[in-house]
Write a protein that binds this DNA or RNA. Sequence first.
DNA 1: GTGGTCTAGACCACA
DNA 2: GTGGTCTAGACCACA
Lengths: 134, 134, 134, 134
Amino acid sequence: MEGTQNIKNSKKEWQLTSDRPVFIQIMEKLKRDIVTGVYAPGDKLPSVRDLAGEAAVNPNTMQRAFSELEREGLVYTQRTNGRFITEDLNLINQLKEQMALDAITNFLSSMQQLGFSKKETLTLIEETLEEETK
Amino acid sequence: MEGTQNIKNSKKEWQLTSDRPVFIQIMEKLKRDIVTGVYAPGDKLPSVRDLAGEAAVNPNTMQRAFSELEREGLVYTQRTNGRFITEDLNLINQLKEQMALDAITNFLSSMQQLGFSKKETLTLIEETLEEETK
Amino acid sequence: MEGTQNIKNSKKEWQLTSDRPVFIQIMEKLKRDIVTGVYAPGDKLPSVRDLAGEAAVNPNTMQRAFSELEREGLVYTQRTNGRFITEDLNLINQLKEQMALDAITNFLSSMQQLGFSKKETLTLIEETLEEETK
Amino acid sequence: MEGTQNIKNSKKEWQLTSDRPVFIQIMEKLKRDIVTGVYAPGDKLPSVRDLAGEAAVNPNTMQRAFSELEREGLVYTQRTNGRFITEDLNLINQLKEQMALDAITNFLSSMQQLGFSKKETLTLIEETLEEETK
DNA sequence: GTGGTCTAGACCACA
DNA sequence: GTGGTCTAGACCACA
């Protein structure tokens, strides 16, 4: 039953676009699901076949995404038993920090390239967040 | 201080990567140069061949980037004479706003997908900006 | 009578000339095939490579023609699956009307520039059509 | 003074587009001016330089158009004296007929390719002409 | 096999 | 020299 649970909790909107390699987008989505706890440490993952179906991609593509995650130590395979999320909490936390840092760095760099000063950028962010809260 | 100067005036850091189509990256770079005034409205652009050489891409690739910019009205061509930046200031301003809005939206969406609340995101941004100013 | 049949069903007379860009001529031919029902709404198109071979042009040239048609909404692409004719009947009808109107307008303008009055033009058309029917 | 006259009578709207070779468009315009009597048989033509200026093209381009017209016998050069319209009325009439025939043939062919029957084409033309007269 | 991108290089019309 | 088109051919992601 826990298998079904996992599938249930996971956000099913894959939202794949064709502007970047699909296997990379899948990796990013899975990483987000790991750092946000959709998949908890030690959780068994749905089968490649199932996830491929859900994401409407070829199983080879899903397989490729998993291979890369495995290489990064985020998931591991138990022969004949399935794939599991790493139990290394440290690694997961590092990943989350790194992803946040990347997002921030990219953003600030974009704004700088567009000619906005740090002050202006901060103001714009504050305005946008206030706007949304209304 | 001259460092900042150079960044502003220079038109030469192309920094193309292979993760997304090169002609798209070129378009983005040229758009940034337009909205930040590196190229002023009405300015004549270097020839396709020169820019292709500078960016180390094939002239056809540069040509494609320009065709798209032309379709968007950001540049126009004078037969056998060269290409020019639009003089439509309105269009340029709209573009700048849109590009900033896209950057902000993407960023906030990324942070939200990583599980950060608006408050946390704001705090992180503030910390990062202060960090850099030290 | 089979002659007429063949003309209607055949998708193969490409008749490309060198007086205008080839990709434009290809677009026009494909548009004609769409508005005349040679390709029905929703039909899957032959692959770029096949059509390029049939028309004896480089696949890139065929690709370009399709990109433009796609931009106009007349065809759409399914990743790795192929290209399809739009199912938007309205769009197809509009296109047909527009193409006919363009042909008529161009013709009347040509005749006027040659110094023929409307009456003379009409008479000439009638004569030509009768001539052919004989 | 007749020189000035000719310039005066000629329709000055050159309306060159970039979709076809400019020298061909110039030839067509000059032919129209010949068959419609803007330039009468035997008329002296303005200088290449003047016409080039009027049409806003490079003199080489205008020159090329004239060379072609000369090859077709429609104009002739008197050494040191200038260029003149042929006095061969027969040739001019033939040209006019041929140009009209080409326009008609092209038009009927376009309409046929768009799937319109002769009857439909005739009706459409009649409607358009009536429409305009209102 | 399918579409998409890119390169190297040729050729054209025009100024 | 300038932009525009086209070819031949390679390589990629994906099914």
